[in-house]
Simulated assay, not measured.
Amino acid sequence: MVKIYRPSYFRRISIHQTLPKGTALPINSFEELDPPIVQYLKSEFNNFLNVVPFKLTSPPPLANVIDKNCCIEWLDNQEPNSVAYIEFGTVATPPPNELRAMAETLEERKIPFLWSIKEKFMSHFPNGFLENARMFGKIVPWAPQVQVLEHKSFGVFINHSGWNSVLESIASGVPLICMPLFGDHHLNSSMVEKVWKIGVKIEGGFFTKSGTIVALDFVLSKIKEELKKQIGMYKELVHKAVGPNGSSTQNFKKLVEIITSC
């Protein structure tokens, strides 16, 4: 029996009752992110295998990406490390008052941004925002996230700190501003800010105009070089992990051997 879990899943189940029953335990991460935890879990479970998603570190060429909203073309005209990318996934969108606070902050500070948000939520923006924002930002219903995050123009990724988004930020070397909503978001955002030191959690746990300004100033101004250096280190580690002799590559090969021998 092979079970696949996110790391945060361990905090919601009785690991001593369920996980030891598996022949292998592959998870969506890479060993170098949390070495002490990995070593402990390896001693507790059979074939504890960190297998990071290879699409994050080996995305398809841009020529094969369908960028129907011309996000990459727009990004090509922006300054390096200047753009805020905003995306909260398909099931985790902040309430209307927080969307307005974010929009008001971007408009007041004229921060270049790419915001991927479903059209039904755009009605919550302040009056005139969609029109005014065209001068310095781009709002789209969908963006090829893995590919756009690789663009040199990005300075920060604002999201709910879901695990996939955190991994995508690390693989792309883009610092985070986290606004946790539910589930593993709160723990992930704490790890981002306090342990890995690759971003910050929004002040108070929800978007206000003042809190958003503080977070953006923190990431995009005086601390940005420190954050970029820190997340750059993890980016290097994850790319090494999926290299020919990397830990994730070896774990994946082992997982294939286990599955094919069942």
Rank of each mutant, 00 (worst) to 15 (best):
M1V: 11
M1A: 15
V2G: 09
R6W: 11
Y9V: 10
I15C: 13
Q17S: 13
A24H: 02
I27C: 06
F30K: 00
E32Y: 04
L33K: 05
D34M: 09
Q39C: 11
Q39N: 14
Y40L: 13
K42S: 00
K42L: 00
N46C: 09
N47S: 12
F48V: 05
L49N: 02
N50K: 11
T57I: 12
S58R: 14
L62T: 12
N64C: 10
I66K: 14
D67L: 00
C71N: 02
I72R: 10
E73W: 07
L75K: 04
D76N: 15
D76M: 13
Q78R: 10
S82C: 04
S82A: 06
V83I: 06
V83F: 07
A84W: 08
V91Q: 14
A92Y: 09
P94N: 04
P96L: 03
E98K: 02
L99W: 04
L99D: 05
L99S: 07
L99C: 07
L99H: 06
M102N: 07
L106A: 06
L106M: 07
E107G: 06
R109C: 14
P112G: 09
F113D: 02
F121P: 10
F125P: 03
L130P: 04
F136E: 14
F136W: 13
K138V: 10
K138L: 14
P141Q: 04
P141K: 04
W142V: 05
Q145G: 03
V146K: 05
V146R: 07
L149S: 04
H151L: 03
H151M: 03
S153N: 08
G155W: 03
V156W: 01
V156Q: 02
V156E: 00
G162M: 07
N164F: 07
E168N: 10
S169K: 02
I170N: 01
A171G: 01
G173N: 02
G173T: 03
V174H: 04
I177E: 03
M179D: 11
H185M: 09
S190E: 15
V192P: 08
K194F: 13
V195G: 09
W196C: 01
G199P: 06
V200L: 08
I202A: 08
E203K: 15
F207K: 10
T212C: 12
V214Y: 14
A215M: 08
L216G: 05
D217L: 05
D217R: 08
F218W: 12
S221H: 15
K224E: 01
E225Q: 09
E226N: 15
E226F: 09
L227H: 02
K235M: 07
V238Q: 01
V242P: 10
P244Q: 13
S248R: 01
Q250K: 14
N251Q: 05
V256S: 13
